[in-house]
């Protein structure tokens, strides 16, 4: 085990024609790591919210806009009834305090195969590509993002950032370090593995509905 590691590293160094890096060289890399250079980013003029909605819809996600946090359950119920989805729901604990319809059967534990719908809080959205950032936590278990057939993500307008780099920066500002999983979700699950024909709902959710608050 140790032998393999040492041999691989030794071969790398041999191929690079040097020994282990000198301390000043590693210091340069450490500095780079702390402040990585800016890479090119797609420039765009479009308003962040408009773009996020447009991009999500272009990939077959649906978006509903509500004015206030308390409107979320009603919007979620509307999505559910319009699509004939059974009210067997998992709701991220972060959203559990909202007034969910009484006829829903729901819990905030990990999603098991019987969960049909999930309601998940977003951490951020990236306008560049219209991508939701969902982070794993007790308030938002990862199984909620993949096991149920349908997913609702609750996003606040002020959570929308311009580029991916901005979203990582926001995450850093929480000071909590990286959660176990960060899911960047850009639409419902899809596949084109049979004759390049796009088909939704390959393994993850068939429908992705975003409730945009604000």
């Amino acid at each position: 085990m140790r032998a393999a590691r040492d041999e691989i590293l030794a071969t790398i160094r041999q191929s690079l024609g040097r020994g282990p890096l000198e301390p000043d060289a590693t210091a340069v890399l450490a500095a780079r790591m702390a402040a990585p250079p800016q890479h090119p980013r797609p420039a765009f003029e479009e308003d962040l919210t408009t773009r996020t909605i447009r991009k999500l819809e272009s990939r077959s996600a649906t978006v509903a806009r509500v004015a206030d946090w308390t409107d979320v359950p009603r919007a979620a119920e509307q999505f559910r009834t319009e699509n004939g989805i059974e009210p067997r729901v998992v709701i991220g604990a972060g959203l559990a305090a909202l007034a969910w319809p009484s006829h829903w059967s729901w819990h905030s534990g990990p999603a098991a195969p019987d969960a049909v719908l999930s309601v998940t809080p977003a951490f951020a959205a990236i306008a560049e590509t219209g991508t939701l950032m969902l982070v794993a936590s007790p308030d938002s278990p990862t199984t909620h993002n993949f096991v149920p057939e349908h997913q609702i993500v609750v996003l606040k307008v002020e959570q929308i950032v311009r580029h991916f780099e901005d979203a990582w920066w926001c995450r850093q500002q929480t000071g909590a370090g990286l959660p176990r999983v960060v899911n960047l979700v850009s639409g419902p699950s899809r596949t084109a593995d049979i004759e390049q024909t796009i088909q939704l709902g390959a393994h993850g959710p068939r429908r992705l509905h975003v409730i945009l608050v604000g």
Binding site: R59, A111, S137, T143, L178, R180, V181, L184, V185
Partner: peptide
């Protein structure tokens, strides 16, 4: 559709 960043095993308070 999905880009996923995974870091280590389940944490103490993780549900899955």
């Amino acid at each position: 559709t999905y880009t996923t960043v995974s870091t280590g095993p389940r944490r103490l308070d993780d549900l899955d």
